[in-house]
Amino acid sequence: MHSKQDKKPSIIWFQGLTCNGNTHSFLNLENLKNLLDKFEILSHPSLPSTQNFNTVLSCTLECDIFIFEGAYDPLMKRNDTLVSKIVEYYAKSTKHIIALGSCASFGGLFKASAPDRNSGLLFNEQEKSGPLLKYESKVINISGCPIHPEWLAYTLHMIAKGREVEINKLHRPIELYSTLAHHGCTRNEYFEWKVDADDFGEKEGCLYYKQGCRAPMTHSSCNKILWNEVSSKTRVGTPCFGCTEPDFPRQNLFATKTNMSIPEDVPIGIAKRSYLTMAGIAKTFHIKRLEGKLIDYKTAD
């Protein structure tokens, strides 16, 4: 028999307004079984669970971790129960609340569709005014559209080990969201020398000036903890859409917003004047190796 300390932390994974993206992403976790062994899954939309959904809705269960996926819609019902009632019950009784994905964190795509009604659990975009304000100390936001499975795995492992997950102002784990999506991109050298890809999907060139890449303004670890362990959006030539940020989704995701050819947003923490000075100087030089196809470039030796 297990002693009380051995008891695995229990999880209820509950869905609000969602496309299931985070559920699906999580199923791609490399060592899913390993992680699941450490928890008791009371309820999950697609994994074997020990409780049925109606029991979850009856608000009689207790869980250690309440994972909420999707945007919060105060009028939404699951079966005949208001989601607001369920969220309130579990938020009060659980130890940890994980707002999973950008919709649960900030409102995301579903907030964009009904801005006056839908929100994240704790935030309305960057404004802390969501329904779980009372329980704010329990809330961890894992933003992303969808989240990388490792981001949730990291958070759950920390909780299972009884370690504190340090969070920033937007309640995101600093371990995962201190870096920018730009860190580790294989196109960094093109960014330095301001050589941009002219077309979508090219192997060479940076996507910042023309293709809409938001990575220098986006907190995430997409180029550090790779997707499917092999790649990332920017590595394959798709601009970062800034999906982890409170202002996601923006308009025109495949184009850089410019004012007279000058990017409206510059990398986080860099004054625009400094950025423009550096960029102008870098653009002055023409680096042959970076201007053509890499495989065509012949070195002297």
Partner: peptide, 19 residues
């Protein structure tokens, strides 16, 4: 290129961007 005139051109960029 911009090497010796960067201070001036950058400031004009700031002007246009702001406008």
């Amino acid at each position: 290129g911009m090497l010796c005139v960067s201070a001036f051109v950058t400031e004009m960029m700031m002007f246009f961007d702001n406008g």
